[in-house]
Design a protein around this nucleic acid. Structure first.
Lengths: 201, 201
DNA sequence: GTCTATATCCAGATAGAC
DNA sequence: GTCTATCTGGATATAGAC
């Protein structure tokens, strides 16, 4: 009895993951409004009606994805900040890892695109907007704090700290979008190109 | 008689421009699917029904905007290539002008965002896809050709030419999206930050 | 030219059978 | 748990009055 319940729970959880992953692909490809519930259902090989056993609405799926996207992003930033590396090494490492992720991991660039889209769009659920408002600044601040340290010890160029942090993320974002568009054909650029915005030769 | 006809034509043309401009703002803000005809009509202070005197569908408006966006972009690129400047000066100038445009011209960043969105989205009219497929490569090629020249004469770094061109546009794109999100508060970064990806010190 | 009213269509969400 | 059928609402596009 309890056995069965647990097993069912587990199956349900797996199915939810599967739906999430398909929804992520579709939202990233077409945006929230243009993605129909039935598209997600078809991609997940279930009927439209059955979707509502797993999620109570399209928006709920979207919100959960936004939450996951920021969780992962912020977790990665916290981890980066805590590494025993010099500021310069951290920035270099961050660029390299982000580019590698973009090139190799399909989901990674989709999450990026999802955030980019969601951030750029008015037409998303209120709750998603709140998550964005609350979480969006952290990656900028994390990078800015590393850059500030690097500027103090002379290893990073003396441009305005916030401007550098903005250019860091907007460049990554731009590449993530490019990747999402060009798919598997995408080859990440040499990390040194981006790095040269921050480092003296 | 002919007088009146001409005048009417002129008024109609102006109204169409007005509608286009409002539609651009809304499409950039919310995307195609999430923008309702009635939103465009309201923003233009006309009834929903009247919209159809000016455009036969929402998609037609979208397609016209995409066409304009690429016309302007490509025209600007052609102009840049033809300037009597050294490759290095051209790149520097292009960065400065693009950043200035982004900061000062509302429409400019909206057109950027529109292209970014449209390029990133599956869910746009077939005809818009065709325009994108046909026109999208030109700016990349134009910048790549300038970079190649600069590499030949030693004024631009010897990274892969296509990678540099890609990073050029994706960085601008990323900033355009950032600007579209943050609106008037946006302040463009120092052009030298971006320039340092291309130039030796 | 402009509006209001309406036909039509499509997508989200629910109900109910199996 | 899963499906099909259906309700409901909202958006596009058209018709017709002024």
């Amino acid at each position: 009895m309890t056995r069965n319940k647990e097993l069912n729970q587990k199956i349900k959880e797996e199915r939810r993951q599967q739906i999430l992953s398909n929804a992520l692909m579709l939202f990233a490809q077409r945006g929230l409004a243009a993605t129909k519930i039935i598209d997600i259902a078809s991609a997940s090989d279930i009927s439209q009606g059955l979707m509502y056993h797993y999620y109570k609405s399209k928006e709920e799926i979207f919100i959960e994805l936004i939450r996951i996207a920021f969780d992962r992003m912020n977790e990665a930033c916290r981890w980066l900040v805590s590494q025993p590396l010099s500021p310069r090494e951290k920035i270099k490492f961050a660029i390299e890892e982000l580019l590698k992720l973009l090139e190799q991991n399909e989901d990674a660039s989709r999450y990026h695109l999802l955030i980019a889209q969601a951030t750029a769009s008015d037409a998303i659920p209120e709750e998603a907007k709140n998550i964005i408002k609350k979480e969006n600044t952290f990656p900028y601040e994390a990078i800015a704090s590393i850059i500030a340290e690097g500027q103090k010890n002379g290893s990073i160029k003396m441009y305005d700290t916030k401007e550098l942090a903005m250019v860091f993320w907007t460049s990554i974002n731009g590449l993530a979008i490019y990747k999402a568009v060009h798919g598997k054909k995408f080859k990440a650029p040499d990390a040194n190109i981006l790095a040269s915005m921050f480092f003296k030769e």
